[in-house]
Design a protein around this nucleic acid. Structure first.
Lengths: 295, 295
DNA sequence: AGCATGCCATCAGCAATGCTTATCGCGTGT
DNA sequence: ACACGCGATAAGCATTGCTGATGGCATGCT
């Protein structure tokens, strides 16, 4: 189970072609063929059907393991070399835009902090690769369920807060006066697609269990104020945690009644943090111990 | 970052000796020395101090990655070869003793199920290595915090229930009439140490944030009834989820008031389950959606 | 102090791995 | 029917990765 073999295997599976994989990896087709044969012999099973090239059931299973494994190998490598190159670099906190609430901001040390706002999938990756000491990720989850984070390193997660989720509507919207809204009823409304600033539509669809939620406008920035302004101007609806959705001029935040999901924020760190990271983590966790407190 | 190199690295770090690691791994000392040198050159940093042999900071970091990585490589391998050897094997559910509640039992299909009761750390490992299709793990956690599971595979976890934690006391115990108990006050009581049946004392100590909790009797089986009988007979106290602690003859269950921890049960599966595993998972999750419902 | 011991680093040599080039068998599409 | 593209296989060769031997350097004992 040499990682090189795994890498060629996932490449072959992805491209459904030995030759194409060879080109992409800079090998000859012969080498790729030998790699796959070695893997299959090692594991004692066929992993791919040839003509057409497709993973067998055992191969499917291997793919589930191999992808994350390779990611983590790379992350581990990046983490160690980075830490070796820059021995002292203060405290870096990676966060998604809506995970950073007033409580966290207040808890930050007064000096030596680098705050890095990233897209949702990039935060765990940054922590895993040592580009950040701590990460804050938010997302939708069933009450008391952990978030589904990409599996890039032996990360430890702590729930630092859960709060209700609101739909942000322009105050002229016919549903603006409602006390609560059902997500299913809004599947065919106009939605903002802001994967980096708000909650990605994919999470919405998954939560609602259906399709719909066609994007009316896509915003690729990470600024929540732009997002709320877009929603207020009627470009589309968006889902936000309560504290981020209240107080927007021209818009009202209506809590989501169905499905029962919460906006959850988790603190992510690699292994057992030490030094300033540990202290910040402690402050965040202590302050957030009461469940349901916005971060 | 060849896994072989990582393996020798963690071995050297563990044994604090090149020669001993060489003996254990079946290499010559020379080979081990070359492995470490190759790793250090590859990563561009020293990983070990020699004389005495100890990991450098960068090496510490690498250790945090390397252990889990190697575990997962092995688990992936075991999973694939097993799946190849035994293509059809019904549905196997691995569980800790106290994670299996009446609701789960009721949800099981009427045929073709293998139920495997394992110790707490073995459950994720069994799922990762394909020895079980699904796992149920329980443990203590802060309310709405995920359990800290060993990181052996790209496992997906779902919270399937949280319930309160009780101290099981013989009904003759002076504290038996109390409405609630503080764990800190019980640090010096006699405790049962039942790592495989109940909740391990280590988790207790961690939850209480202190020391104490000396074991009066150690029970290495997995039978909860034996554990409750021992507690009723005054051999020591034990912590159990409410449903498991009630109705024990000769003993009473007193809820734990401090610290604020819950008994949490999580469903663990590898990647996206298919077939009968998916159906069982769905039943468990649907039934348990209301938070706080015992499983 | 002197010496012996155990440790890790280094070097040379050798076997095995892992790549390349070349060729073959086999389906497919024209 | 034929040419093409794909993957498997064989032979050759450079490199890797091991072993065994040796060297420098501490520590501990006499």
């Amino acid at each position: 189970m040499d990682p090189h073999l795994l890498r060629t295997y996932v490449t072959v599976a992805r491209l459904a072609s030995f030759s194409a994989a060879a080109r992409e990896l800079g090998y000859t087709q012969s080498a790729v063929s030998q790699h796959i044969a070695a893997l299959e012999q090692d594991l004692g099973t066929d992993l791919l059907t040839r003509r057409p090239v497709a993973p067998t059931p055992a191969g499917e299973r291997l793919l589930e393991h191999a992808g994350p494994l390779l990611l983590r190998l790379e992350a581990a490598r990046a983490d160690v070399v980075r830490r070796a190159a820059a021995p002292e670099h203060g405290l870096t906190l990676a966060t998604t835009p809506t995970a950073l609430g007033p409580r966290t901001v207040a808890a930050l040390p007064r000096a030596g902090v680098t705050l890095r706002v990233l897209a949702r999938e990039e935060v765990p990756e940054a922590v895993a690769a040592g580009r950040a000491d701590l990460g804050l990720v938010d997302g939708l989850a069933a009450p008391s369920d952990p978030l589904r984070l990409p599996d890039v390193a032996p990360l430890t997660t702590y729930g630092v807060g859960e709060e209700s989720v609101c739909v942000l509507l322009p105050d002229t919207h016919p549903l603006a006066g409602r006390p609560g809204l059902r997500l299913g009823d809004l599947a065919h409304a106009r939605w903002l697609d802001a994967p980096d600033a708000g909650l990605p539509l994919a999470q919405l669809r998954a939560a609602a269990g259906g399709s719909g939620f066609r994007p009316a406008l896509r915003y690729e920035g990470t600024d929540v104020r732009v997002l709320t302004a877009l929603a207020a101007a009627g470009h589309g609806l968006t889902l936000l945690p309560r504290t981020a959705a209240t107080g927007v001029p021209g818009a009202v935040a209506v809590p989501l009644a169905q499905p029962r999901v919460v906006h959850r924020v988790e603190l992510v760190c690699l292994g057992t943090p030490g030094g300033p990271a540990a202290r910040l983590a402690e402050v965040l966790l202590d302050g957030g111990a009461g469940a349901g407190t916005p971060v």
